[in-house]
Write a protein that binds this DNA or RNA. Sequence first.
DNA 1: AATGAATGAGCATTCATTCAT
DNA 2: CATGAATGAATGCTCATTCAT
Lengths: 217, 217, 217, 217
Amino acid sequence: MKDKREVHASVKDERLVEKRRDQMIKGAVSLFKQKGFHRTTTREIAKAAGFSIGTLYEYIRTKEDVLYLVCDRIYEQVRLELEELDVGEGTMESLKLGIVHYFQVMDRMQDEVLVMYQEAKSLSKDALPYVLKKEMEMVGMVEGLIQSCVDRGRLDLDSERIHLLAQNVFVQGQMWGFRRWALQKRFSLEDYMNLQIDLLFAGVIGYETHGRTGGVI
Amino acid sequence: MKDKREVHASVKDERLVEKRRDQMIKGAVSLFKQKGFHRTTTREIAKAAGFSIGTLYEYIRTKEDVLYLVCDRIYEQVRLELEELDVGEGTMESLKLGIVHYFQVMDRMQDEVLVMYQEAKSLSKDALPYVLKKEMEMVGMVEGLIQSCVDRGRLDLDSERIHLLAQNVFVQGQMWGFRRWALQKRFSLEDYMNLQIDLLFAGVIGYETHGRTGGVI
Amino acid sequence: MKDKREVHASVKDERLVEKRRDQMIKGAVSLFKQKGFHRTTTREIAKAAGFSIGTLYEYIRTKEDVLYLVCDRIYEQVRLELEELDVGEGTMESLKLGIVHYFQVMDRMQDEVLVMYQEAKSLSKDALPYVLKKEMEMVGMVEGLIQSCVDRGRLDLDSERIHLLAQNVFVQGQMWGFRRWALQKRFSLEDYMNLQIDLLFAGVIGYETHGRTGGVI
Amino acid sequence: MKDKREVHASVKDERLVEKRRDQMIKGAVSLFKQKGFHRTTTREIAKAAGFSIGTLYEYIRTKEDVLYLVCDRIYEQVRLELEELDVGEGTMESLKLGIVHYFQVMDRMQDEVLVMYQEAKSLSKDALPYVLKKEMEMVGMVEGLIQSCVDRGRLDLDSERIHLLAQNVFVQGQMWGFRRWALQKRFSLEDYMNLQIDLLFAGVIGYETHGRTGGVI
DNA sequence: AATGAATGAGCATTCATTCAT
DNA sequence: CATGAATGAATGCTCATTCAT
């Protein structure tokens, strides 16, 4: 599978395409946040992007293309932000820091993640796999962090547990955004992170060793 | 806040209203599963319910009412299925069984949960709180299970941890459905439940005590 | 091949469908006459038919359906008008009268025929065969007239000549309409009919003086 | 009336205008053949012509100009091909040969003729007369052929008959193209030509057996 | 209480044409 | 002269909702 699903643009100048799509995506994200994909019209997207409806369609083929570009962009952003996560040294501390970092990114991008979360199902059968693949890559990054702790003997987990743990962490990051109505009333981000890491690692490294007193950050 | 948001019906006969809404919800759920709320037309809903579009509007005021009724119904069903969960005896065993039971319900109703999950955002500002309240009640049920273990001294957790743990468990149940594309390829339901409970309780009851060999069921 | 291509209507009451389509076709023909199929909008068709755009689409699926219905209707009308043509007695006189009758029908319906003539190419690959089949049936009616003269020995023509003659007559009828800018300035309908029949039959009955054996090329 | 309707070009260099229009017409004809005038976009025309949409509009003012140029060109081509027809010697043989020649041209150019035939109605009130005039000139050429036979006493026809005969021949040539679905299945070009000429002349030269006095109606 | 025909605002998309570079 | 990005009016079609029967 190719890494990106090409979205057709009539305009040839690649720089311009990039620029216009930036505008478009920025506008669309903000609209999708407010009203969701279905309730947003292409005209609104064009207007929010700062150009005419005709111009919008020079850079996409269908409305769904906008959704795909939005999802793609969000993943890309999240991934860029998480890139450093890759270089975990395999210590528990670096793992925790990685997770904290991930949670912080998810906090900062919670609107975007929410959008993607709720609208991804509107992607065509054609585009969905690309987005899911991206998501798996991100889970893979978390998995990598954990794996390196296992490799260095800091954790004792089989591959299935590693994978599921990664998925749990990943979802807990998203959760902070999509269950904000329940969580953000009750916890500050810091508290949330500390508690989640605590619950997570208490399980992994064993009950007696985990000091509940000090936070990670 | 009232427990239910009343949905206006022109028809007076309450029995009939109940019956017709049953038909309507059943049809709607099946349609929403396939195509989502936005892509489903009121005509399709009426047809699936077995009556005419005119009749449909005798029992609702707007299309969104259908969504609310559907969400409401799904919660009700889930809650009914979880009712017995209430009577945890406060043993770790009963807690685990409760969670297993919850996971099984979420497995059986994954389509419905997915629908609710993805479409709830389309509810009006008016209806959303009712649905969120229901969700909190369900989290509350999980919380109750954990609490009773704490009360009986089987677990040592402060109220914040109890709450977050309950949310985690709750989301892990939903996760099985909404991340099925990633999870159900890799795990059987049984494996998933065992692993999750393992990861959960290893942390809570301490590392050395948990025998990883035997599953819960 | 079925005799008619069904055009889907959402409305069940067949009488009503018939009635509404009557209105629609009448309006459409008049518009197509003025501006052609492509330059006529569905809104205009609806308005000319006396109902809203929404209602129009209760009785058709696509704009092209209107064109098909129009073509179908025109053929039906022409055929109805030509029905009596069927009972040629096989005399030269009845043949001539048949042709005269046909020319008169084509004169009366020249607008409709022109429409069909110029717009038929816009029919989908799906619908075209039905229209062509109808046209062949009408040619067949002319052919029948000639054939019965041959059968009774009033004319001596092989089947190929019969067929081509029928096509010629058929086209000459249409010609009166679609070349009106050239013909109707110069000839009255009566003159045109007399002259065409004259030219036609002079050839047919003056057969013996012409050597049919060698082709020209 | 002028002989040509001027189509405005911004570009001054007449040679270039000629060259560009050549490209444009060639591309347009090929597109119109496939999809008709209305379904062809100006962008497609430009592309088929080998230059940009901006350049296209340096050589025309509106899309309809392209249609006019195409029609004009087709007539010009047909006329060029028929030029030799002019020099009929007034023998029956030369008349027949002329008609054969015309039929052959119409066979070769049937796509073009079909295009013109079906799209001419889309010409503006402004441009139509020029095209019709061209068509009359061509009919005039056929008429000339017949006339010279009459002049030399090989045929005995009044001017009205001459004219109508010319129109009939002309239409029979076009017919071969626009009724190809009916005719070309049944006849080879050669057969078609022989039969048509046969039917035509049998009538014309076998004249004495037919009473011209009374009309049919 | 049930029906389903009618409505029309609303939407995605196209495309002829312009104009700055 | 050539280019092609920008424009926005126009169009086919949908669908939630109403209301007369």
